[in-house]
Design a protein around this nucleic acid. Sequence first.
DNA 1: CTGCATCCTGGTAGATACTG
DNA 2: CAGTATCTACCAGGATGCAG
Lengths: 131, 131
Amino acid sequence: MTEAAVERAAEVLTPYCRARDVLDRVGDKWSVYVITMLGERTLRFSELKRNIHVITQRMLTVTLRGLERDGLVERTVHPGYPARVDYALTPMGESLLDTMRALLTWSVEHVDEIDTARRHYDHTKPATTNP
Amino acid sequence: MTEAAVERAAEVLTPYCRARDVLDRVGDKWSVYVITMLGERTLRFSELKRNIHVITQRMLTVTLRGLERDGLVERTVHPGYPARVDYALTPMGESLLDTMRALLTWSVEHVDEIDTARRHYDHTKPATTNP
DNA sequence: CTGCATCCTGGTAGATACTG
DNA sequence: CAGTATCTACCAGGATGCAG
């Protein structure tokens, strides 16, 4: 009856289809950085830009828009000149950060093991799709 | 001194750079499906293909190779004709699945809230980039 | 300071066809 | 059954320039 179990697993995956949106967030390079940074405290656009120095302005904007749209980050505009905008995690954003941290922890803990596995794999199985 | 805290957060992110590999796994559409399926029991190539019916042969192969390379999945060939290959999670793979599940659970629990946030966002901020 | 618009490029997924 | 090879199309992301 393991067969049925597998089919059940396949069905269980259905709701995950919708969960993909969330997983994509975590899989998104910049979102993780931004969420982690904002987990520390509210930050302005330029502060985020400065701390994640390798990010492009465009990508920071795009990332923040996405996070705002998903209700994970709140954007607050302080009128004046020059304009000033604050970004902060919403409760849902903080909730995600908590969950995400577990995965980050796992990642950091297993990076070495994965590296080892990769080296071993690359060593024993000289690239099939090469040159 | 919140400033220092933020800088610390930025530094803390450094190891995450290497953790990106792991996050990419989770962000990868097919890896999540495969890992979840294999969490149920060992499966053959064709069984995976059948249960994740929308996946391409190529993508299934590519995904499995990646997971094998990272030491998350173990590949066992049973000689004979037709050939037969089993895929199973390694201990590390199971460990990842456990951690991943928390995120999957979070996702499923918050999908509605995110959808709502998106609708609200799209409603209040009529597309900036539109015809 | 903050952020939108535009153009351009490389990687990546899908379709398809062929083998051990 | 379990792949590999190849070709194409698309889109995310980087560079750049301008504006409120």
